[in-house]
Design a protein around this nucleic acid. Structure first.
Lengths: 193, 193
DNA sequence: CGTCTATTTGAATGTACTCAAAAGCGGTGG
DNA sequence: CCACCGCTTTTGAGTACATTCAAATAGACG
């Protein structure tokens, strides 16, 4: 059950067998069916999650009713609302399963326990947070400086496995364009080849 | 010299007098004249900086030669290229003084020393990183869902003190629009009142 | 098979950019 | 103190990028 999680940890830090076992023991398995929610706006996010199987999207609904996708999470990715989780404030985000999912959840209490008893874990999360931050910074720059056209092509090249599992509507909400316009972009690109 | 830094720390964590003194002692003062650089593309960022006085901009130049401002840092803000600093890789960013500046710099070595000897410091940086991340996430959403018009108004309302010290060119590079277009937005808004 | 949702297409509109030129403004040297 | 230079801001015209709305088509699923 926690095999994928163990491999994920090993990529970043070195933990002994027993430490790994302790850490993995702090997680709770959770199965979510397609179209169901792991988190809804207004709730406090009580977990940090590791995706073992499936696909989720993390999104926000703005005051005009439009959905903005912050990111997608598939196997081997982490998922949470870091703001709500750390500050224990109501979330402004939704986390929805786009496929049937298996997720491993760790509570704040258990994470703090890990911080205190497994010093390397601190590093694990620090590194992860940094990577996420840098990725977000890059995406910021891209969104400011590139056309939807370029962003779509780069997204397809970077996450080919993800594209196949997403509808145009989801991709468009991630790129910050309408699904109608995405359809036109795809047509234009298809003609070019 | 480190008074502002001390106040900044107190907002997030509680350190004893002596601990504060030790921590502040790990910083080195640096004066930068207007139009000079604290960091240039290609260099490894060897510091994390706290701005005591002045105004800096952190930006990236894309392959078409356009400058994208990631953020501005004024008094009481921190400034670094977190990617380059933590991974000791060449930076893709520039950090330039837009006014004469006084900055307090801490090296990686000294920061690690602080982590080991002043446990609360870990928390300080964790909290800061998180706040930055959440702010960036919000900005991401705004950029995806709002017009330049709205983004400009919100930026002016959120950072009125900053707006006054920035040229249109800088503001435009932050908002992801041309300075020509910003000028037109300002005219339109002025007429409305 | 019917229903529901996703995708495509076209026309009209709005948002933002490019290019070029003029006007404004600040600093520097004579 | 003024004249000049360089940089910023403004303005206008033409164009490119992206959205809205509406309708047609295609797919997915019970």
């Amino acid at each position: 059950m926690t095999l994928l999680l163990q491999q994920n940890i090993k990529k970043h830090i070195s933990l002994s067998e027993s430490e790994t076992a302790i850490f993995c023991g702090l997680f709770e398995q959770r199965l979510i069916k397609k179209k169901h929610f792991l988190l809804s706006e207004g709730e406090v996010c009580r977990f940090e999650g590791f995706v073992v199987k499936g696909l989720l999207r993390v999104y926000h609904i703005d005051k005009n009713g439009f959905e903005q996708v912050l990111y997608f999470a598939i196997e081997n990715w982490w998922v949470t609302d870091i703001d709500s989780f750390t500050n224990e404030t109501p979330s402004q985000l939704y986390i929805e399963a786009l496929e049937d999912c298996e997720v491993l959840l760790i509570s704040k209490k258990n994470k703090d326990f890990a911080y205190e008893n497994l010093p390397e874990i601190e590093k694990l999360f620090r590194v992860m947070t940094q990577k996420t931050h840098v990725a977000l910074q890059r995406r910021m720059i891209d969104n400011l400086s590139k056309t939807a056209d370029q962003r779509y092509q780069e997204f397809s090249e970077k996450y080919p496995q993800l594209i196949q599992r997403l509808s145009n509507i989801q991709i468009a909400a991630y790129l910050g364009i309408t699904n109608v316009f995405l359809s036109k972009i795809r047509k234009k690109l298809a003609l070019k080849r």
